[in-house]
Design a protein around this nucleic acid. Structure first.
Lengths: 191, 191
DNA sequence: ACCTGAACACCGTTCAAGT
DNA sequence: ACCTGAACACCGTTCAAGT
């Protein structure tokens, strides 16, 4: 909650990163609509005027937010790629990460940014970079499972789109057993 | 574009439905952030004050928008269910509807509403109703293809989540052949 | 280098008054 | 029954002035 942050006594002067972190907090809490300069300034304990020392305008804040988001997502992909485990284990790990809905904050940010990307070029560019990285990783993992390149591509698209789409459904619309069975279908080895 | 609407000479008095239609237009064009009372009033050719004769506040407009959206989606499901065609043909038709990205306006509205649903109870309720209806239909179609109930459930979740997730990816991140192959994987008949 | 304070424009909301 | 017009609060943006 931003109200907590508001109560904190500010000591050091703020830098751009602090504003971006606060903006992501508000994005997670209330969507793009909630990323507002004045409430953010209040949450950080300064006047809204000081915002314009760090950023040209609200748009520049959104761009900085997008940059930080895509960098973070791509770093996370790299981390998974470096795991020294069999590909099936990594895929199961990724599936669990999404389907267990263990990170609602990250998900809220992701969906808010994808909504933005519908009408916003810079957001669309950030989303595309992240999708390409994720698809490359997952395709490599399916390749490691024995699928031929074209099939590995298709399975990767299926796997990634599934996890992503499912994470946007209301959890209670589907029982856990069905979700588990869906993942198993995707992980059946090539004959 | 709303600017076109703005130019139109208004003749009959407005009703709530006209405001909701305009709001959905703005939602499609610019996301939830763009659904604003004053610009909407201007687009409809009236003063913003008159908005409050039809709705208690902006929130009430959003709720009416959500209601109209979920009713429309559920009516569309019913239409598909009434087709007198083999289940595989209906599934292929549904797949084409999504993967060909032929309805960007509907998609923009859908993603904006799902973003809202992250933090907004009424939006979450509307989304859930739509998902349940769609999953029920798709599960019935897979059942018609010869899958046992539990497998039909899992395939339905896979199919629907896939189409939905894929529609949120940047199209250019994946080639058409891979997308086609992914759908074929889902439609392989039970052995 | 970073922030304040005052100013102005835009939008949400209210409401008395108009037709 | 539906709309206008004026009022006020809130937020984006600017900028001169402060430390």
């Amino acid at each position: 909650m931003t109200s907590r942050r508001q109560a904190e006594a500010r000591t050091a002067p703020l830098d751009a990163a602090a504003w971006v972190a606060g903006a992501l907090e508000m994005l997670a809490d209330g969507g793009i609509d909630a990323v507002r300069v004045e409430p953010l300034a209040k949450a950080l304990g300064v006047t809204k005027g000081s915002f314009y020392w760090h950023f040209a305008d609200r748009r520049a804040l959104l761009d900085a937010m997008l940059a930080r988001w895509s960098e973070g997502r791509i770093a996370a992909i790299r981390q998974q790629a470096e795991r020294r485990e069999p590909p099936e284990a990594v895929l199961r790990h990724l599936a669990a990460l999404y389907t267990r809905h263990t990170n609602p904050r990250g998900l809220a940010i992701e969906i808010a940014i994808r909504s933005l990307a519908r009408t916003d070029k810079p957001a669309a560019k950030a989303v595309r970079a992240v999708d390409e990285g994720r698809l490359r990783l997952v395709a490599a993992l399916f390749g490691g499972l024995g699928w031929k390149p074209a099939d590995a591509q298709a399975r990767a698209l299926l796997f990634y789109s599934y996890l992503f789409g499912e994470s946007l459904l209301d959890t209670r619309a589907v029982d856990a057993q069905t979700r588990a069975r869906a993942v198993e279908t995707l992980l059946t080895p090539p004959r």
